[in-house]
Design a protein around this nucleic acid. Sequence first.
DNA 1: CCCAGATAGTCAGGGCACTGATTATTTCCG
DNA 2: CGGAAATAATCAGTGCCCTGACTATCTGGG
Lengths: 152, 152
Amino acid sequence: MAAVDLTTHPGHLARRLQQAHYLLWNAMVSEEITSPQFAVLNALVAEPGLDQRTVGERVGLDRSTIAEVVSRLGRRGLLDKDRDPQDGRRFLLRPTAEGEKTHRRLAVRTARMNQVFLGPLSPAEQTQFFDLIRRVADAAEGLRNPAEPDRA
Amino acid sequence: MAAVDLTTHPGHLARRLQQAHYLLWNAMVSEEITSPQFAVLNALVAEPGLDQRTVGERVGLDRSTIAEVVSRLGRRGLLDKDRDPQDGRRFLLRPTAEGEKTHRRLAVRTARMNQVFLGPLSPAEQTQFFDLIRRVADAAEGLRNPAEPDRA
DNA sequence: CCCAGATAGTCAGGGCACTGATTATTTCCG
DNA sequence: CGGAAATAATCAGTGCCCTGACTATCTGGG
């Protein structure tokens, strides 16, 4: 036998958490715009004119994934993509008027959804929840990016 | 502006947590067998002869996804899939000898990886971590499956 | 000035995840 | 018995996510 108890595996739990979130997002926020798409839109509302790579860094999407997400948002007319006159490798991204409107609408719904999602936890527990997950995720990311030594 | 702080969004955090886990799994457990594949193998080691749907239920994969994962494990020769003589709709799954061996090998590495992954948290915090995530995920799943009223 | 190395983005390929439609089989009821 | 409803699995379609290989552009040193 020797099977393992998956409920003690953080990876399994993380996957289930994300699935649960996906379903709730679909039900309460939007069936059109996904959560990663909203994240990109949000980054561009905060800092219009970012290039693709930087947006990916901000929201935690790699170069391939960000390209796909950006292309979908472009197809929907929610962002503009123009070549950087200063650097021909870059594309600069900014939300369209429609994109900003969509962002505003979804931001409200997202806030509501987050309340429902975190509803089972007390305010103190919610703080803990963020803190613990953030620490684990940050540390694991740190293992990848060898974290340039503090000073040369 | 009115952009939102994504670090206070559980969905965004959940995605980052899963990504971090994915990378660590790849580095410390296996580049061949993924975490969901291991979960399926694990369920079958615990209960050989389960049908596809039930395995999916055990590990939290929907009918389409479980079909793909099972097909990959079958291609690799890690499980057998036979039609249930009792019920011609079902396929019964069981690990092959190779599948059991792989499971044993990965179980060890998975345990090591989990230690590294949760390393930044104290034992008490790890308990909290599991508890909080489990409660949020369970509650959100409950919203989907209307949880048949306690008594008719 | 020119080319080697770095950088932004694309593309091909594999895997996970969901929905809605379809097929095969079983079950239950009239 | 016989057909309607339920159930197990598949398929097509969409989207997220990563890697490795490739293209285009830019930058810096000889």
